[in-house]
Design a binder for these strands. Structure first.
Lengths: 131, 131
DNA sequence: ACAACATATTCGCTTTCGCGAATGCGTTGG
DNA sequence: CCAACGCATTCGCGAAAGCGAATATGTTGT
């Protein structure tokens, strides 16, 4: 990992929106529309921050038709991977971050999803075998 | 630790000069003049970066007469402290960073220090019992 | 008291970053 | 084929960050 890549790695973590994104992903894969819904932020803003994290090698994207899923991936550099694991653990213990998780859970387990999430693929931890 | 403090923490790590400073300190305390000598950078530049790290709660300063010593300190937040420990370990395995350590060692163990370091207090790992 | 030393801080400039608004692009359903 | 959807990217602006040069501040030796 070059010096510039390492700088980009830490700068990518130096923004509360990007940290919230990382925490909401956790060990799971999350669709972009859920980030927009949980954070109440504009879609271009979320998209730009995800691009930033992607360029820093911290998340990976997977397209499923028109739906884009994102997940945290361990960076190729072992040292960076260890740092990132500690970061995610740190975020997991934060009450404000946990509120985001709660909002995601409330959303996904609601009797009826809002219109704009009606056909959205749920994060796998919320997928029931019977729907 | 507030959201803003956490952002500042990561942004503080998002600069190669500040990372080199952290690595050169390691577990030791280092005088400002050695940073200037090893990096070959201007004193105001080094000073400003140290101030940045200080404000981020990553280093602490100790004045000894006119000499200023800096050392890495564990942040008060336990999560931040764990992340920082991983960061320092990561830096320790980096060849370019190790070159800085080598330059510091060469400097401190030289038969004669350069004039501007003549009276400077050496990092404790280079202090011999007999001088 | 004062000059010299070591370091911190400010000023002004340039570069980089974050964001709303707008737009571009790939996919999908009719 | 085309409109609608989901998302990525660009534009332009304001804010933040990095740095050289200059200066301020505390300490020390004469």
């Amino acid at each position: 990992m070059t010096e510039a890549e390492r700088e980009r790695f830490f700068l990518a973590l130096g923004d509360r929106t990007r940290l919230r994104l990382l925490h909401l992903m956790g060990e799971d894969e999350v669709c972009v529309c859920f980030f927009v819904a949980v954070f109440g932020e504009s879609q271009p803003k979320i998209s730009r921050h995800l691009a930033y994290l992607r360029r820093a090698g911290i998340v990976a994207a997977r397209r499923e038709g028109k739906w884009m899923h994102y997940r945290v991936v361990p960076p190729r550099d072992a040292g960076a991977a260890r740092v990132l694991r500690e970061v995610v653990a740190w975020l997991a213990s934060d009450p404000d971050m946990q509120a985001d998780r709660a909002r995601l859970a409330n959303l996904c387990c609601a009797p009826r999803l809002p219109a704009e999430l009606r056909d959205a693929p749920l994060p796998s931890r919320f997928v029931q075998l019977t729907r």
